[in-house]
Design a protein around this nucleic acid. Structure first.
Lengths: 337, 337
DNA sequence: TTGTAAGCGTTATCAA
DNA sequence: TTGATAACGCTTACAA
């Protein structure tokens, strides 16, 4: 059912119908009513493609993340979807799988699709994908991490604070030899995560053992195999080199649990663990995981709200919102001597 | 950068450019090459809105589910997204939150957006939202459950088999009094879930106690409060009326764990539990949850594949694919006398 | 081999 | 108060 067909039924011109549907005051109120009820009757819905083509207003945004399945991200886009829905918007969702080529394709697809804005968790903080974004002048909000440009909108939590919190907590529980499972070495976010660890160590005037920081891209499975290596004595890090572990994600923390099981170690009796993210389920692990909470829902809702504001008001301001992580104390850390 | 602008740069007509970009053989191979490299140089991407408007071919599908955040669904649409990406398609994702009005809005939005097809986990198996879908003649694949019409495509797992498996497993472990936490009483899927439970009980010539089946819409939190009621003695079901629990979802099983903790009961020592879905994380619960596995990834990939086939080949066949659940034996069930 | 023109369903401008 | 018309960016007969 298109405007034209509706016009036939109503016996008026199609442009009259168009105006009537948009409640244009210049159209006689009775005509308007008549046409509107006709529209309802015939289940008329505007073709958003045509609308979008005409006035670049598709009521859609794109959300590009790195792992659709991860509970971390799903909490974020859940929040995004909810707010979008309330505002009559819909989202495209795409998964870059931590791959720059895929990310670029996703960005280009979204632009071609006519999205009015983009929320993206960038694979890399300075890839030329991001330049593309700026060049094409797409309204975008970065989440989870932030690119190296200044003039952008983003909302993310400060990894330095997170690892500082985790490290300090372990130190106050008597741990002096702390293994840090960090992200890939070249990533700014890994640098930040390391920095907080360092800060807390220095603050406590504890020695920093460089070999106790492992840089890798550690998913659940990767962590299992890394920790298996370590705990089976096949790694430069020895079994007694550390009493506690800080890791970059709860998924990875679950991997540590798994490896501990494999090697008959008990958490926290043999090793303490602090995770990061506070994803769903960590409270039900055995033992419940002590972790650093990221306000994921808030990240999502702040990001859409910012984006929607900028779309709707056409304001050109950019905001950097830095959220604070908090420590969630549960039972994966042992107090020692 | 549009076709017209490209045409200016290339010094040819815009329709020549259009054809060249589509690799139309009637255009001189050199012209084609020249234009194509020009397109690359200027970062040209077709406007999919215009394309879609012209030839109803938006390369998008809609996915409408009931809880974007649930690990159950996220595994499904992860699989959907992957296959879509490989085929150059993108998905709109929307959350109906188990609400029919929201579902209807979502469906209408998607249609207006020009999706070529829909994958939907319907709120209700016979709402008039589904009639709308048929009426509008949108290619759709139903997942998770199936509407009551015959001439539809769907992929879902047989709940009867699932609950049969769970019940039988408990029976062989010596349980005779089994509490069934079922979905809302009016839902066909609840009926099916009940049926399997009944079948197994009858097969073992065990008595069926109707009061041991509780119908409700049981998320994690709702289950916690239900089980708290029961275990604190504030429910018609008594503490000793059952030794084991079968529940309609792992999320709900986690709720049981939580309530057990609250009431100082041990699983499986005091009560055995069998879940349903086998969502991520259940293997790491304490104790690891014995549950009925739903092939979620397969559900997703079969659903998109069917949809894509029907879109691409324009075939009009409909398929009902019924997947089989399997029992995952872990440690939440105790063998008793 | 290339170009012209119509049309997809809207909105918006201008004329009637 | 209503209607005709052009335009958004693209595809595709058909004409040149």
């Amino acid at each position: 059912m298109t405007i034209k067909e509706l016009a036939e039924k109503a016996g008026v011109s199609f442009s009259t119908v168009a105006k009537a549907l948009n409640n244009n005051e210049t159209i006689n109120i009775e005509t308007r009513r008549r046409i509107q009820s006709l529209a309802k009757k015939y289940n008329y819905r505007p073709n958003i493609l045509a609308k979008g083509l005409r006035n670049r207003h598709t009521q859609t945004i794109g959300v590009i993340l790195n792992d659709l399945q991860s509970p971390f991200y799903s909490e974020i886009y859940k929040a995004i979807g909810d707010i979008l829905y309330k505002n009559g918007y819909t989202m495209y969702l795409a998964d870059s799988k931590y791959d720059e080529t895929t990310e670029r394709k996703n960005i280009l697809t979204m632009i071609g699709l006519g999205v009015e804005g983009l929320i993206i968790s960038a694979v890399n903080e300075r890839s030329n994908n991001l330049e593309l974004l700026l060049m094409e002048d797409v309204k975008t909000v970065f989440i989870d991490n932030r690119p190296l440009w200044d003039d952008i909108s983003c909302v993310y939590v400060d990894h330095t604070v997170a690892s500082y919190l985790a490290t300090k907590y372990l130190i106050t529980h008597g741990h002096k030899k702390i293994l840090l499972l960090n992200g890939p070495v070249n990533l700014p976010s890994s640098r930040r995560f390391y920095q907080g660890y360092l800060d807390a160590l220095k603050e406590a005037t504890l020695p920093v053992n460089p070999s106790l920081t492992i840089y890798d891209s550690l998913g659940l499975l990767e962590t299992v195999s890394l920790m298996n290596k370590i705990w089976m004595g096949n790694h430069r890090v020895g079994l007694n080199d550390f009493t506690a572990i800080i890791t970059l994600s709860d998924l990875s923390a679950i991997g540590i649990y798994e490896a501990a099981l494999n090697n008959n170690f008990s958490i926290p009796r043999d090793y303490s663990v602090v995770g990061y993210d506070n994803i769903f389920g960590t409270e039900y692990l055995s033992p419940p995981l002590t972790t650093i909470h990221q306000p994921k829902e808030q990240t999502g809702s702040l990001a859409v709200t910012m984006l929607l504001n900028s779309i709707l008001s056409k304001a050109e301001d950019n905001f950097q919102i830095i959220l604070n992580p908090t420590l969630i104390e549960r039972q994966s850390v042992l107090k020692i001597d």
